[in-house]
Each structure stands twice: as C-alpha cells, then as structure tokens.
Design a protein around this nucleic acid. Sequence first.
DNA 1: GATGAATGAGTGTTCATTCAT
DNA 2: GATGAATGAACACTCATTCAT
Lengths: 215, 215, 215, 215
Amino acid sequence: MFKNPKYSCPVVRWQRRKEARPGEIIDAALELFCEKGFAGTRMDDVARRAGVTKGTVYLYFKNKEALFYALVNEMVVPQVERAENMITNHAGSAASLIEVLIQQWQQNIIKTKLSGIPKLIISESGNFPELAKFYIETVIQRGRKMMARVIEKGIERGEFIKCDADYVSRVLLAPMVFTAIWERSLASLDNETYDVEKFFKIQLEIMLHGLTKTN
Amino acid sequence: MFKNPKYSCPVVRWQRRKEARPGEIIDAALELFCEKGFAGTRMDDVARRAGVTKGTVYLYFKNKEALFYALVNEMVVPQVERAENMITNHAGSAASLIEVLIQQWQQNIIKTKLSGIPKLIISESGNFPELAKFYIETVIQRGRKMMARVIEKGIERGEFIKCDADYVSRVLLAPMVFTAIWERSLASLDNETYDVEKFFKIQLEIMLHGLTKTN
Amino acid sequence: MFKNPKYSCPVVRWQRRKEARPGEIIDAALELFCEKGFAGTRMDDVARRAGVTKGTVYLYFKNKEALFYALVNEMVVPQVERAENMITNHAGSAASLIEVLIQQWQQNIIKTKLSGIPKLIISESGNFPELAKFYIETVIQRGRKMMARVIEKGIERGEFIKCDADYVSRVLLAPMVFTAIWERSLASLDNETYDVEKFFKIQLEIMLHGLTKTN
Amino acid sequence: MFKNPKYSCPVVRWQRRKEARPGEIIDAALELFCEKGFAGTRMDDVARRAGVTKGTVYLYFKNKEALFYALVNEMVVPQVERAENMITNHAGSAASLIEVLIQQWQQNIIKTKLSGIPKLIISESGNFPELAKFYIETVIQRGRKMMARVIEKGIERGEFIKCDADYVSRVLLAPMVFTAIWERSLASLDNETYDVEKFFKIQLEIMLHGLTKTN
DNA sequence: GATGAATGAGTGTTCATTCAT
DNA sequence: GATGAATGAACACTCATTCAT
C-alpha cells in the first residue's frame, strides 16, 4: 500500500539552509567530539547528527581539524566576554560576586552543552597543543585574572584575609572546572546520588568561610 | 571502533602474562594513551616505546582494548590499597591526616606517571563506559569514602564544624583530581608560572580554615 | 570511472546546444583535459574557466563524458575537411604540396589550441577506446590517406623515388604529430632552446632529399 | 565435496616476498598508469595486478605519487646508461650506428613495457611537471646529445652532409619516440595493418638517404 | 536559463590484527 | 618467544551529478 509515487518520497530530499548549517554542524561536532574524542568521531556521524550528509560538512569546513578549531572559537569567545561584562558591572561585595559567578557557571556552562568544551580541550591537548594554547590564553588565563581581581577587591574591601589572589583564584576555579569535566564524563556512570547545586553551595560556604576574616 | 555495545565490556578483561614485558608495554601504553588518546595511539608506537615490535604486544595482550583494561587494573588497584592502609594507621588530628593525604597525592600521583590515569579515564569514558564504571567504583567511590571518613572523624573530634561529610569530601578532592588532570594536559602549555606545592598549601589553608570551628 | 564497458560508447555521444555557451565550455574543457587529463579535471574547473557555474555545464552536456565526446567531435571534423579541400585544390609539385601541408599544420594546429587534441586522445585512449577509434578513423586514417596520395602523386610525376607511399606517409606524419604532442606537454619544461619552424624546415629538407631521385 | 578442512584453504594465504614486492608493484603500476592514467588508476588495481592487497603497496611506497616517482626512476636510468655505453663502444660508420640504435630501440623499448614510459610522462606532464623535468634532463636531453654526437661524427667522417646536428637528431628521434607512444595508445585500436619493423626500415632509408652526400 | 547547496559513491590512506618465518 | 610482512576493514576527503531555488 501507499505505493502511489506521490507518497513514496513524501517530502523534499533536502533543503537549502546555508545560514543554519554551520551552527548545526558545530553543535553536532561538539557533542560527538566530547563523547567519543576527536579521533573516535567519524565525520559521517557528525553529518548524520547534524541532519546532513558527509559532503555537506565539507562545504562548510575544510576538514575535520578546521571543524574542531571553528567549534572552539565559536563556542568559547562569547562566553568569556559575557563573564567579563558581568564582573565589570557588578556592584556589591566580593563574596556576593563570587556567588553570582558560580551561579552563572552552573546556569550557562554546566547545564548547557558548553560544559563539553573543557573536557574536550583537555582530552585533545596532546594532539592539538596549538588549540589548547589558544584556549589557555583566551579562556583560562582571562578567567583566572577575572577571579583574581574579585579576590583582590575582597581583600581591599576588608572582606577577605590577606592572601595570594592568583593561587586563591585557582583554588576557587578548580572545583568549578572539575565539575564541568565530571558532568561530561563520569557523572552519568556514577550510581551514587549527587547534586551539583548542593556541591557548589558547600564549596562556596567553605571557601568563603576560609577566606573571611575572623575578628 | 567500539560502536558495538558488546565490545564495551569484553568477556576476558585482561590477563597477566610473563615477567617484565607486560609491565614495560603497559607503561608505554599509559604514556601514549594519556598523550594522544586511545584512538590516537598506534599499537606500533606502544610497541616501539616499549622496545619491542608490534607482534610482541599481541603475545601479551589480546588486543588494544585488553591492553587498556590491563593498564587501568594494574595501575589503579595498588594505589587505592596503599591509601586505605595509610588512613587506617594514622594517629593524630583529622587536619593533619588531610595534610598527609594531600602530600601523598602530590608525591605518589601527581609527580608520577600515575597522574595520567584520571585524565585518561575521563577522556575515554565515552568510549569505555564499563571501564569507567570499574574505575568509579574501585577508585573514586572508595576515595570519596576515605576522605568522608576523615571529615567525619574531624567532626566527631570537634575539630571541624558540622557539615555534610560526603559533599565536603568532594570539595576537597575536586582540586586534587583537577590538578592531576591539569598537569597531564594543559600545564606544560601554560606560560604563567605556577607551583603545584603552593597551590596545595593554599588549598589546604583555605579549606581547613573554612572547616575549622571558630570559637 | 569507466570500468563498465558499456560506458565507453554511450548511446548519445554528444549533443549540440544553444548558441555560444557550449563553445566556451568546450574550449575550457579542451585546455583543462589536455593539461590535467580527463580524470584530473574537475567539472567545477571547466565551469569556472568557461565563466559559468557547474550546474550550467550540465545544461549543455549530459555528463563529463559527453563533454569529452562533444569536444573531440567539434574540434576535429572541420580541420580534416579543410585539409582535404586544400589537397584537392592544390596545383603544383608534390614536394611543394608537402611543404604547404607542413606550413598549414604549424599555422592551424601547432600554434592553436587544436594541438591539444592529439595529446588528449593519446592520453585517454585507454579510458576511451571508442572515442579513440572515432579519432583514428576520422582523422588519422584520413590524414594518412591524404599524405599517401601526395606521395603517390610525387612518384607518378617522377619527383620521388619508388617507395611504399603508406609507410612513407607515416614517416612524414610522425614528426608532425609528435611535435604537436611535444608542444602540449614537455616543450615548456625543456630549458634547451628549440625552434619549431626550424625543426620543420630541416625535417622537410631531409625527407624531401631522401625521397628525391638522384639522377 | 572437498569440504575436508585440509583442502578448504589449500595453500598459504600469503607469502613474505620482501625482495620481490617493489619490482612487482612497479611493474603493475607502469602498466596501469600507462593504460588508465595516474588519476584513473586505483591503488587497489595496482595491488591486485601485483598480486597483493592495497595495504602492501603502502608498505613499500609512501603514497601513489611516490610510487609514480619510483617507477620512473627505476625504469629510466638503467636504459640511458646502457644506450650511452653502446655508443661509446661502437666502431664503424655513423650510419651503421644509427641503424643499431634504431634496432635497439625496437628491441629494448618498443617491444617491452618500457615503451609505456614516454606515453606516461607526456600524459602526466601537466600534473607532474617536476617529474617531467627530471625525465627531460635525464633521458631526453641526454638522448638528444647522444644522437647529435653520432650525426656530428658522420659529418666529420664525411658520411653526412653538413647540417645542424641538434635539429637533425630531433628529426631522427621524433618518429622513434612517436612510435613508442603510438604502440602504447592507438596502435591496438587501428584496424589498418602496420608493421613497426618496416616503418623503421623505411624511416632509416629516407633519413640516411636524405643525410648522405650525393657526390 | 542559471545557480550553487546538497548528495553519495568512490578512492587514497591508515592501522589493528594475523600469521609465516 | 619474537618478528615484521601482509591483510582488510575503516575512515577522511573528493567530486560528478542532482535539484530546490
């Protein structure tokens, strides 16, 4: 039944979507690279997940490596800028700013597919050192500087004890980044219950308590 | 590779074979898998770095996957046991025990090739979920429990404030594991100076200060 | 491509289409096929050199093969007819006719893009035997016959020694065709100076001297 | 019948023939490149004709291009040297030397698979100009010089009329090279009978007659 | 008619694995 | 036990061809 040719190929074979394609392909690539690694991901898979065929991917990206680079560029730069704006515009205590930063990290990174980026960069750093360097300079060092400035502000304002702002920022950021990595790798395989929000709440308490002057 | 789910948990996970050879091959594989990823590492490279030829690797390991499983098993189990012994035998404050644990972590994991394991497991978790589960149960959950017991002991002894020992252990462990991953991935590419010992010293100060009762 | 024998002699060999476009496309194809070979030439390149887009080429030619067939047909037939007319209308000695033929060959073949055809046919004879046969029958055999008739005329008129006109025509034609091939392949890569006109002048001298009766 | 496992896989699946392989592969490649062109030849075909699988070809040659280069090198250099030796050692008239050279050309080039080389180089000159240059310098220019020396010797000895030895050598060589190309391309498709030996006999007669002093 | 986005079959190359030596 | 030549399945990438616009 339904052999009527009109219905045997019901919709169009494909559609022209020049504008939307690159973004869809990048999304697919991020998911797959993060899941299976760069080498373990087949271009065919990227294409299929993006709803196109292999050839189409090559219309928009010169090769697999270029796709990887484009992905990191596209995904990473806007986030850094958003975070920097937030810090500049914040009025209030350093402690409250740290709290907001952690909340935003949960909201905009951990809960979105962006959390795949740190895991991906780390996993592929050995094969793509140049890209990793780009990420370090564009994201990590700038992130560290942002956090360090917040710490320094807290020290100046008398909120925090005197300390090495750079290292303290590293101590603050480590669990944040680690959580992103964890969520994209082992979280779903761990049978012990665990709540990200609670984790960050407790991290915040301990760290702020640890940094706060006890007079 | 590894699309077929039945390969993610092979029947015979690993086998120990004769004398020294397997150890040398495993060492070579750990380094290379960690550097280039599982898929990105060629059996030829493993063999060459181990000082044998490709065929020899197959004398000791059924295939690439078995080599990976053997590697994780071989490397991971002894460490967990050593750590558990240490905790059981420790006499002293909880704070001092945490300090010792962090020192040992630096000494025996971060500074050795063992620090490659966490990065490797995380990177390959998508392709080897069964192995990742094994690691979670054998290492991570047990590690978390150890650390939680120390926290609880500190609470009982009146050293620490009342808190959720499980989540606090996670907050304590996150920077430790993150550092292992960092050292095996981006550390060598980051031009900003950074001293691991100082990092752990400051982490310890903040965390212990954050956990300690202020009377 | 072209493994299946049924494609070596397609049903519809070529079709003429509208106005100027096909000519421009054929010109572009001749240059590129001759330069890079049939398989090495991309339809995209043909289109671009003809100043159109890829789709347009397919408006005028069913496929790449049809373009090749059309090209040979279009380029080859008029030349043969022109040469035959010239011979029929020539009044004078056989020697002078040979001289004119060589001059015309230089003028109308060697110096124009038509010299690409022999190289192209020879290069692709393995992949397009049917087309090669068409060329042999339409051009080569007729060319040989023309030249043989001239030789015979020379023998009859007492200009030339008795000889096998067919083979002598081959000996006369070989350097002519070779020169066309040479100019379209290695000439531009050879750093030794060389003048085509002088080559033909000397060829003519030797050959005519070799054919002329010494009384 | 014959389901006895002993007989189901009667001989060895493959044999180690490290020494013989490269030569066999080069032979297969020469035939196929010459027949179908470089781009039109599949590595799979080369392998099959050489009696191995594709992977084996890559054990001995880095890639398709390297195979092409190796082929030309291997095939071409020994021939040039042999020809030069012959000329140096020849005692006798220039005419007889030319006769011997043409005979050798028939014997060692035209009748063997070596005759494929000129056609191949010419066909691929557009895609491999560097290789073509190598061939021009190593084979063609040296060949031309050899022939020119013979002509000069003939002039000195009073056998030949005064002439430009370089151009005359070109006129002599053109039909020889053309015949090699012809035999490897259109000869088998031409239904007109034709005998290579007779062609060269007549070429020799005409040319020598054309060059010889008539006193 | 003309375009160029999209397709998908085809090919060069790699590499885990096998097995004759 | 050890080797490394040989295999063959897998995958990145290309390009002739189609067809929605």
